[in-house]
Design a protein around this nucleic acid. Structure first.
Lengths: 122, 122
DNA sequence: AGAGCACATCGACGCTCGTCGATGTCTGCC
DNA sequence: GGCAGACATCGACGAGCGTCGATGTGCTCT
């Protein structure tokens, strides 16, 4: 055991993200939000979240996710762990299968960051 | 090499992001969006974007940004380059000074990704 | 022409990340 | 009990990242 120690968030608070525009972001706040974005800043993990969110019931079995990629089962498991550790995914073991679901409000918290970014009109 | 567009610089790929929820994201689309998130997935760069966006006129001089951090000028310059290369920041040299501004619509494109994330149940 | 400032680039360093094969742990079934 | 399947964990590898000091480039003013 060595490094993985996030605990970035264990509570459904998710009260992290102020707009990003408007007033400058504090250093502490940036340190808190960055791991969330880092967890999402990977093509595979992005697709994983998307696949899970678009699945029936908002949850997906690992076995199904595994088939959607040309990667080892170990690698997929690793990515799911990263997303879970970041607080983005919920984990539910049912019998032999494990189901992951997007934690409610997790993506919304991130969306809040860029929300005011609706300065797009121009 | 099953290449994707390199987007190494300056291309307004901003017409990228479908919702993320709803329908699963394609591999190509994930590869296109991930670099954007990766550029933002750093506390320093997050604060840089925030500082610039919150500045008067939506732009900020490098000298001012430099003073806001306990980092070397070389490091700040590096981070600004990363953000610029990702298409998030515009660069404008005026005399001796260089001003960076958040590219219009850049954050909005990212916001679009998490937008439908309003699946927040309650 | 020369000096001085603002910013970019270079080369190097330690650290983290994404991926893999191998192995461990738990569950359900014969 | 034992075996097979579904996931997680371990250890290792190459590649990339964040940071630094040193140096380069372009502008302004004297």
């Amino acid at each position: 055991m060595s490094t993985v120690e996030e605990t970035t968030m264990s509570e459904p608070g998710l009260a992290c993200c102020t707009p990003l525009t408007g007033t400058p972001m504090s250093a502490a706040q940036a340190e808190q939000v960055a791991p969330l974005l880092k967890a999402l800043a990977d093509p595979v993990r992005l697709r994983l979240v998307s696949l899970i969110a678009a699945s029936q019931g908002g949850e997906a079995c690992v076995c199904d996710l595994n088939d959607a990629f040309d990667l080892t089962q170990a690698t997929i498991s690793h990515h799911l762990k990263v997303l879970h550790s970041a607080g983005l995914l919920d984990r539910d073991k049912r019998g032999v299968w494990v189901y992951y679901a997007v934690r409610p409000g997790a993506l919304g918290a991130v969306a809040n960051l860029f929300d005011t970014a609706a300065l797009v009109p121009a």
